[in-house]
Computed example of a mutant assay.
Amino acid sequence: MKKTALLFLISLILIVAGCKTQNGYSPGSDAGYATGKVLDTRGNPISDAKIMATNTLCANTHLVGTTDANGNYKIKIPAGVWKMSAEIDRTYYGHQFQLSLHPDHPEVFTGQDGVICNFEWRLYGPKVGQTDRFYGGEVKISKSKKSRINDLENIVFTFIPVSPRIDGSAGQPETITCGPRGTQDYARFPDLPIGQYRISARYRPTGQRIYLRNNAGGTYLADGSVTAGFSGNKKSDSCINCMTLEFRD
C-alpha cells in the first residue's frame, strides 16, 4: 500500500513538472522572466536581435534585451500584463531594413508567470494578428499618364531574383497580378520577399508587352523590364520596405 502511494506521488510530481501554463511557462523554470530563442530562416541562431516586452496598459513602457551568440535571451519582467516582440536590423544593397520577427507566443502574459517566447525570421506571410501587414516588402504600382490601360488587374508581372534575398537564400521567380479596383490589393503586391528582382510585365487580354520603370526616377528600357529592389526604412522614404514601379503600354 505504501509502495503504491509512493509511486502515485512520484507520478503526480512528474506530471506537474512537465505541465505548462497557458502562457507557455513551465512551473519552476524562471518564473517572472521572459526567455526564448531567436532563429533565422534556416534555423540558425541570431545574435544581437532586439527583444522587447511591452506593457499592454502603458504602451510607452518597454523592457529591452538582446540575444546572445546562441540566439538566447532572458529579461526580468515586473508585475503587470505584457506582450513580446522582436526585430533585427539588416543592411541590403545599401539600404537599412528593420525587420519584425515572428513569435510563437503572441498572447499576453503576466510578469508573475513569465513566458517562454521564441522568434523566427520569416521572409513573407501575414504578421500575427494583423491580416493587412506582412513580413515581406510591398510593391506599389502606378500608371504613366501616357498609358491607356486602366484594368491593372489584367497586367501579369514576373519577378525574377537576380541575387540572393536579404537572408542570403536563393529566391524563385514569382508571376503575380494585383487585385481589382476597390480592393486592398489594387495596384500593389503587399508581401514579396525582400530582394533584388528583374521585373517584366504583359497585358493578359492581348499579350502585349508592358514597359516598366523605377518610379523613383528610372527610365524605360527597350525590352520593357526593370531591375529594382526595396527602399528600406529610412525616415525620409515615403513608404517602409517598399518598391515603387510605374508602367506604360
Results as ranks from 00 to 15, higher is better:
residue 1 M to L: 14
residue 2 K to Y: 15
residue 3 K to E: 15
residue 3 K to T: 14
residue 4 T to W: 11
residue 5 A to E: 15
residue 5 A to I: 14
residue 10 I to W: 10
residue 11 S to R: 07
residue 13 I to R: 01
residue 14 L to H: 04
residue 14 L to T: 13
residue 14 L to K: 07
residue 16 V to P: 01
residue 19 C to D: 02
residue 19 C to T: 14
residue 20 K to T: 11
residue 25 Y to L: 07
residue 26 S to N: 01
residue 27 P to M: 02
residue 27 P to H: 03
residue 29 S to Q: 09
residue 30 D to M: 12
residue 31 A to K: 02
residue 32 G to W: 01
residue 39 L to H: 05
residue 40 D to I: 06
residue 41 T to V: 15
residue 42 R to E: 15
residue 42 R to D: 15
residue 43 G to R: 12
residue 43 G to K: 11
residue 44 N to R: 12
residue 45 P to Y: 13
residue 47 S to P: 00
residue 52 M to Q: 13
residue 52 M to R: 11
residue 53 A to D: 02
residue 57 L to Q: 09
residue 58 C to Q: 12
residue 58 C to A: 12
residue 63 L to F: 04
residue 64 V to N: 01
residue 65 G to L: 06
residue 65 G to Y: 07
residue 65 G to P: 08
residue 67 T to P: 04
residue 69 A to V: 13
residue 72 N to H: 06
residue 74 K to W: 00
residue 76 K to N: 14
residue 78 P to R: 03
residue 81 V to A: 00
residue 82 W to S: 00
residue 84 M to G: 03
residue 86 A to Q: 07
residue 86 A to H: 04
residue 87 E to T: 10
residue 89 D to I: 05
residue 89 D to C: 02
residue 90 R to A: 10
residue 91 T to L: 09
residue 92 Y to R: 03
residue 92 Y to W: 06
residue 95 H to E: 12
residue 96 Q to P: 00
residue 97 F to D: 04
residue 97 F to V: 03
residue 98 Q to I: 14
residue 101 L to P: 11
residue 101 L to V: 11
residue 103 P to D: 05
residue 104 D to P: 08
residue 106 P to S: 08
residue 113 D to W: 02
residue 115 V to R: 13
residue 119 F to A: 08
residue 120 E to P: 00
residue 121 W to C: 02
residue 125 G to S: 09
residue 125 G to H: 09
residue 127 K to R: 15
residue 128 V to G: 01
residue 129 G to H: 06
residue 131 T to Q: 13
residue 136 G to C: 10
residue 137 G to S: 09
residue 139 V to F: 09
residue 140 K to T: 11
residue 140 K to Q: 14
residue 140 K to G: 13
residue 143 K to S: 08
residue 147 S to A: 15
residue 147 S to P: 06
residue 150 N to V: 08
residue 150 N to H: 12
residue 152 L to Q: 05
residue 152 L to P: 00
residue 155 I to K: 09
residue 164 P to L: 10
residue 166 I to H: 10
residue 168 G to V: 05
residue 168 G to T: 05
residue 169 S to E: 13
residue 170 A to Q: 15
residue 171 G to L: 03
residue 171 G to I: 02
residue 171 G to N: 04
residue 171 G to M: 03
residue 174 E to K: 14
residue 177 T to W: 00
residue 181 R to K: 14
residue 182 G to E: 05
residue 183 T to A: 08
residue 184 Q to K: 13
residue 189 F to K: 10
residue 189 F to P: 12
residue 192 L to K: 11
residue 193 P to Q: 07
residue 193 P to G: 10
residue 197 Y to E: 05
residue 197 Y to G: 09
residue 198 R to N: 13
residue 199 I to E: 01
residue 204 R to A: 13
residue 205 P to C: 08
residue 206 T to K: 01
residue 208 Q to F: 00
residue 209 R to H: 02
residue 211 Y to W: 11
residue 212 L to S: 02
residue 216 A to T: 09
residue 222 A to S: 14
residue 226 V to R: 07
residue 228 A to Y: 03
residue 229 G to P: 09
residue 231 S to G: 05
residue 232 G to E: 04
residue 232 G to C: 05
residue 234 K to V: 00
residue 236 S to I: 07
residue 237 D to N: 12
residue 239 C to L: 05
residue 240 I to W: 06
residue 241 N to W: 01
residue 243 M to R: 06
residue 245 L to Y: 03
residue 247 F to R: 01
residue 249 D to C: 02
